[in-house]
Design a protein around this nucleic acid. Structure first.
Length: 875
RNA sequence: GCCGAGGUGGCGGAAUGGUAGACGCUCAGGACUUAAAAUCCUGUGUUCGAUAAUCGGACGUGUGGGUUCGAGUCCCACCCUCGGCACCA
């Protein structure tokens, strides 16, 4: 090839072929003697014909780090695969009117070609596809394991239903339209008002409905405390940690029991601020609570008004309640409750601002220290008491909303709590109330159990068998005494008649018509040849579960599978296994490989999975840890949340018509150009906008690079050149470690500009430059390494350049002149002038400006200020 | 309302308390060319002044204060933007 033309398509194809043939990115899983590095990138789900430029942006970010670690002498494992099961793929198949199987045959080929054409260093020998029976038999095995451990159960519950996807959704898959990035639509075609607060399906943007159905749940709440606690010990992007913490939503408080005056009854209220309880002046219960627990107690003269209010409130939809805003309404029940702390008689009210579904559904009103309580008290002329003095020191009466002190402070008017700070007072009162038997500590979480049933076709069938005969006799897989710890206290235990299927996989049959029914049952329910079976215990006719599991169950363990792909453990036949006595110990993992490679060293992915995949994967890992199957709780000690590549100010999406296809750019400019360009646009955790003009410039830079490498070089390196080169190494290394690829590239460009201005460029400088470029532009670097610099095969087996610290030590310095003990003047000198402190000091004094300034002043000291201040006395 | 993150040229974005605007895009001028494209060179925060030319001054990081020899960076108050949570007791 001509040395003056950089032909990207020839070079890139050539090296991609060589890499594949020689398998240089294939990892020796039993590697010894080298430190291992598991570099994981969130696998894509094939819900379109191919990847868009956003994937190129994020996957390149992950690949660069992997290549960097490789050059830092780590044995790097960088796998890739496909999250091919699930609603997203199925919906796309429906759209193109094909079966998911057939659609995937085509799209996976495209995805693979695209990923390869970007030049990522993936180990394709450890690839996996979640819809492959070899994979999903283990997903089913996982479900069975969880079931046996009491972590999977079935219960009837009010659940989210997407009328468009015709399936239920987990709480995490329901969000506001803004979060989903979709305009809300209603299944019946009615328009959604812009002021309406609606929740939509994460996938399709349809407004969700509520339905009561019997479904399978995973008991993630059992791990709420550990999921929360461990967050403090893992190195994750801050915003993701915060989101998870909020989603778990831990609240510590106490349930206080207040006797109802003159009745043989009491009301339980949950509060997180028992330290303010001396300031309680009323009780409010939700309409739900009133209807359920209070109606019989209410005096006749109040009953009509209360009933009317309750009925009215309960007939309103959630949306109506929200629309009415914060105006407080309510009705007095005629009843009083006693606050046993001070024997205060608190009127009991009913109001719809109290939620039936949170806490106990009843609240104790402390109007001085809760804004909502204050609004309510003002509305109905209920007394307000101050029991906390906040940081502003105000002790006056609380008469307006802005005087309500919700923060921490010092307790007053609270008898034995007086003078204590909020923290101490809380501890004291908690102990006191428990000791008196008036209350009980209670911790609540926002996190709910994970609903995994899906009434769809494209997923792993939930491997459970239902035997009606056994159910009638109250039999189940668990004997009465063998109910696991986790489930023993649960009211939700309704699994009589259910047995786990161990003859795995329960194959998903090929169906020609697989569309969701919308009846609350999945398409498999129409296929007796699938669901008809025999009870594994009594042998009578039994039925299989016809729902499939959530796609997030597939992806909750895939990172554990990658390193084990190809092992005999992962490949073993579970159908043969069950005949063996050790069937309980069957698992897809090789212990040596697990300990060599896991947990994942760096997980690179999108922040949108904060409460979805990332939470589920942590939960599953903890469960597997408790079952003794793996030896760590946290699968991802380090997670980096990348940003998103946007186009014309918006997220790329088909409906907006702003999808950038990376193929066009790879063909026109080359993968290296696209890699370098997307990385240069901005910080990796930002939201850079893709523009065509910029990429032209980047392509020109690569051409100039190519020319630079092809110019004559000398063997000697000048001192100035050496300083520059070493500064660049230092900067680029630091930036890559912090995922600041854009500034790393800028430094490389600066070095190139510098080298171009030199009359002679040394070979050493070019070698360093080539190495610095290698993670970003792997093909170009490889070509230069071998063809131009004549080095051994593959730059990626070479080592990252070392910094010569001696050379870059001399940085610019400041000379500060001290008069009468205070620094009064500072001069700045370039590094090469400031090698000797005395020389510099003399020079400072000699400076005409300083000289003039110094006139008539007594110089005591000059101070040498490079990075830190070093004092020395001027003689 | 509460909790985060942030506000720097025409644009994307750089700056361990130490020459603000690296690097790139855009734009302008020049060279080459019959011409255009490509390429290369020069300039490009605002403003004032000056020279034959090299040049010099002032102001500039949302606003107003403060600390410091020195502040985009640290502290206080305010304004604005973007995320997350939201009648969760």
């Amino acid at each position: 090839m001509s040395k003056y033309n950089y032909n990207h398509s020839v070079v890139e194809k050539k090296w991609q072929k060589i890499w594949e043939r020689k398998g240089i990115y294939n990892t020796d899983m039993k590697a010894r003697g080298k430190q291992t590095f598991y570099n994981l990138f969130m696998f894509p789900y094939p819900s379109a014909e191919g990847l868009h430029a956003g994937h190129a942006f994020s996957s390149t970010g992950s690949d660069i780090f992997g290549r960097f670690m490789r050059m830092n002498e780590k044995e790097v494992f960088q796998p890739i695969g496909y999250d091919s099961f699930g609603i997203h793929s199925e919906n796309y198949a429906i759209k193109v009117n094909e079966t998911p199987q057939k659609m995937l045959l085509r799209t996976l080929k495209t995805y693979t070609n695209q990923l390869k054409s970007m030049g990522h260093g993936y180990d394709w020998t450890h690839s996996l596809t979640t819809s492959d029976p070899d994979y999903y038999k283990w997903t089913q095995w996982l479900f069975v394991k969880l079931f046996k451990a009491g972590l999977a159960y079935r219960k009837e519950a009010e659940v989210n239903w997407c009328p468009s996807c015709k399936t239920v959704l987990a709480d995490e898959q329901v969000m506001t339209p803004a979060q989903a990035g979709k305009d809300p639509i209603r299944a019946d075609g009615k328009p959604v008002g812009s002021d309406e607060d609606v929740m939509v399906c994460e996938r399709c943007g349809t407004v969700v409905e509520r339905k009561i159905l019997k479904q399978w749940f995973l008991k993630i709440t059992h791990y709420a405390e550990r999921l929360l606690k461990n967050l403090d010990n893992i190195n994750w992007s801050e915003r993701v940690v915060k989101t998870q913490k909020e989603w778990i939503g831990k609240k510590e408080g106490i349930i206080i029991t207040y006797p109802v005056d003159g009745k043989n009854a009491s009301i339980d209220c949950f509060t997180t601020r028992p330290d303010t309880n001396f300031g309680a002046t009323f009780i409010v219960v939700s309409p739900e609570y009133a209807r359920k627990n209070l109606v019989n107690l209410i005096p006749p003269k109040n009953i009509q008004k209360v009933t009317k209010y309750v009925n009215n409130a309960l007939n309103k939809t959630e949306q109506q309640r929200k629309k009415e805003g914060r105006v407080k309404t309510g009705v007095f029940t005629g009843l009083y409750a006693i606050n046993r702390l001070n024997n205060y008689k608190m009127p009991i009210w009913v109001s719809d601002f109290v939620l039936g579904g949170f806490g106990t559904g009843a609240v104790v009103g402390v109007p001085g220290h809760d804004k909502r309580d204050f609004e309510f008290a003002k509305e109905f002329n209920i007394p307000v008491k101050r029991v906390v003095v906040g940081s502003n020191g105000d002790t006056s009466e609380i008469t307006t909303l802005d005087k309500v002190e919700e923060g921490e402070g010092i307790a007053i008017n609270s008898e034995f709590l007086n003078g204590m700070n909020t923290h101490k007072a809380t501890e004291k009162i908690l102990d006191y109330l428990e000791k008196q038997g008036w209350g009980k500590r209670k911790t609540t979480y926002h996190l709910r159990d994970w609903l995994i049933s899906r009434q769809r076709y494209w997923g792993p069938p939930i491997p459970m068998i239902y035997c009606e005969k056994c159910a009638r006799q109250g039999k189940s897989w668990f004997t009465k005494n063998s109910l696991p710890e986790n489930s023993r206290n649960s009211d939700d235990w309704q699994s009589a008649g259910w047995y786990p299927e161990e003859n795995l996989p329960v194959l998903l049959p090929k169906l020609k018509y697989y569309l969701p029914q919308g009846t609350g049952k999945g398409p498999l329910a129409d296929h007796p040849e699938f669901y008809k079976t025999r009870c594994p215990v009594c042998g009578s006719v039994a039925k299989r579960e016809t729902d499939v599991s959530d796609t997030f169950l597939d992806s909750s363990w895939y990172f554990l599978a990658y390193p084990n792909v190809g092992t005999k453990e992962y490949g073993q036949d579970l159908r043969a296994q069950i005949k063996q006595t050790n069937k309980e110990s069957a698992k897809p993992f090789n212990d040596e490989i697990l300990s060599n490679w896991l947990p994942v060293d760096l997980y690179f992915g999108g922040a949108e999975h904060a409460v979805l995949h990332l939470m589920y994967a942590r939960f599953i890992s903890m469960a597997l840890f408790d079952l003794g199957i793996i030896s760590f709780e946290e699968p991802f000690p380090r997670f980096f949340a990348h940003g998103l590549l946007i186009k014309d100010g918006a997220k790329m999406s088909k409906s907006r018509g702003n999808v950038v296809n990376p193929d066009d750019y790879i063909q026109k400019y080359g993968a290296d150009t696209l890699r370098l360009y997307t990385m240069f646009l901005g910080p990796m955790d930002g939201y850079p906008d893709f523009r065509d003009t910029g990429i032209e410039g980047m392509r020109k830079f690569l051409e100039r690079l190519w020319l630079l490498f092809n110019t004559k070089y000398s063997l000697k390196t000048s001192k100035k050149e050496s300083i520059k080169v070493n500064q660049t190494i230092k900067k680029v290394t630091k930036d890559i470690k912090k995922f600041r690829y854009n500034t790393a590239i800028a430094s490389i460009m600066e070095l190139v500009n510098f080298l171009k201005e030199q009359k002679r460029i040394s070979q050493d400088s070019l070698i360093v430059l080539c190495k610095l470029l290698a993670p970003f532009t792997p093909h170009l670097a490889e070509e230069v390494w071998v063809e131009v610099l004549g080095k051994d095969f593959s730059i990626h087996k070479s080592t990252w350049p070392k910094i010569n610290t001696k050379i870059i030590k001399n940085q610019p310095v400041n000379i500060a002149i001290q008069v009468n003990g205070k620094v009064r003047k500072v001069l700045r000198f370039a590094h090469h002038e400031a090698l000797d402190q005395d020389v510099v000091a003399k020079k400072a004094i000699a400076d005409p400006k300083i000289n003039q300034w110094l006139k008539g002043k007594k110089v005591v000291k000059t101070i040498f200020v490079p990075q830190k201040i070093i004092n020395f006395v001027l003689k």
